[in-house]
Design a protein around this nucleic acid. Structure first.
Lengths: 151, 151
DNA sequence: CATCCTATGTTTAGCAT
DNA sequence: GATGCTAAACATAGGAT
């Protein structure tokens, strides 16, 4: 057979694709590629890396540079004892820090002078929540995923 | 400077590299790329995907993706104020208990510049990571079969 | 530190086995 | 399903800003 008939990689739409037979291979390849990237990152940096996939059908698959249990334990441990929040040295979004900040602010609002503390900054934050909710309401379709970059 | 002097991507050895300044950017890029792959996989398959990195220095970074429906459901559920629920992490209930009250005040002051400080992205991240953690906890509770590939 | 750029290494969509 | 192939899409090392 002519080996030159390959069409080469095609661009695909970044949205939910049916897990039909035609796509099964592609998805399998991507999972493999994802785990490979995780492994490479671990190798290059020496970091412990864990990847967990929970499929729509409820099956879970994971990759761990050590065991995924150890990864999750470590992670939860870090989160639990995390008050100092010094887990971000590459400028990524610190979700927990953000959350803690937000929570503290809200508690402060509850206990103290709401009007005073409810300054422009916090208003904008809350406004963002509102905007997000509105946005979600509009987006009825799934195919969207949420990203998290944490500490 | 001549823009055409770029050397292009070079092949690197797949081994631990020192996290010196020269490599910091590269590693940061790889982390970003890894998370992007995870996001793409989630988008294409609809699976929930979580990635955790724990660096040698003990700092953690993570990515998580969850379907927009789950995010929405969870968020609305939290908004309703289920105090008895066990998804008890870092006091998020406090946040949502006061959310409605605060939101009203926000609405009253609706004419502020909207997207500047805490963008909705961060909140999405916040919710997603917490949901993922909840999911992991549940998995651990049920002793659900998480497949592990040790390397 | 983030981001842009280039050139090139790597991944992978679509087919076929 | 896994593997092999091609070629286009994509990721990224090195360097500059």
């Amino acid at each position: 057979m002519d080996k030159r008939t390959g069409k080469g990689r095609q661009k695909i739409e970044m949205k939910l694709i049916e897990d039909n037979e035609a796509h099964t291979t592609t998805l399998s390849k991507r999972k493999k590629g994802l785990f490979k990237k995780a492994n490479e990152y671990s190798t290059l940096t020496g970091a412990d890396v864990g990847v967990v996939l929970i499929t729509a059908s409820g099956k879970s698959h994971s990759y761990g540079s050590i065991s995924i249990e150890k990864i999750t334990d470590k992670f939860l441990e870090l989160k639990q004892g995390d008050r100092q929040s010094d887990h971000d040295d590459v400028g990524k979004l610190d979700v927990f820090e953000t959350f803690e900040d937000l929570r503290k602010e809200v508690q402060a609002l509850n206990e103290k002078e709401k009007e005073r503390i409810l300054d422009k900054h916090k208003l904008e934050q809350l406004e963002a929540i509102k905007l997000w909710l509105d946005k979600i309401k509009k987006e009825k379709k799934r195919s969207c995923s949420i990203q998290v970059n944490q500490v």
